[in-house]
């Protein structure tokens, strides 16, 4: 059995959402409309800082992963409370010799994800014309396109 959850992340004022490189741990931002564009599908992302590449599922930020875990935890709590609630009802019938009590587990508050405007610089890839926001120091670092991997 598989259960699907969906949630939204609010981007910054320009529609950029934060991602995290699994190799170097650096954060960068991608435009939500480009990331979700079904006309230009992609499997892997390149880190704009170190340029290494991995499946795009590995680039979610800590906040996103926390939120996913929280939603999954709450679903588990809901299922357990429901199952034990039914069990309690069946045990605690009148004249039953066995009584059951249980304390329902509490759900955890799910935070809304919202990206703030930060000081990163936006770049457009000359190859695929998609955008990335990174902390950039001119002449001291290279920026790689997260989608096609070329240096910008």
């Amino acid at each position: 059995m598989s259960v699907e959850f969906s949630f939204t992340i609010q981007g910054d004022s320009e529609g950029y959402v934060t991602f995290l490189c699994p190799f170097c741990g650096s954060e960068f931002k991608l435009r939500a409309d480009e990331y979700q564009n079904d006309d230009k599908p992609f499997e892997d992302l390149f880190c704009p800082y170190c340029g290494l590449t991995k499946s795009k599922d590995n680039f979610y930020s800590k906040e996103v992963i926390e939120k996913v875990e929280t939603i999954a935890y709450n679903y588990m709590v809901e299922q357990l409370n429901d199952a034990f609630g039914k069990m309690k009802k069946s045990f605690n019938k009148p004249h039953s010799i066995i009584k059951m009590d249980f304390k329902p587990l509490k759900k955890v508050n799910v935070k809304e994800l919202k990206d703030k405007d930060t000081i990163e610089t936006a770049f457009e890839c000359g190859c695929c014309n998609r955008h990335v926001k990174v902390l950039y120091c001119a002449g001291a670092s290279k920026v790689f396109c997260p989608y096609c991997g070329v240096d910008i």
Partner: peptide
Amino acid sequence: LSLDFRRISSNLLN
């Protein structure tokens, strides 16, 4: 070369 190296390095790391 940069792109090729990053691809082959990523393959190794993954």
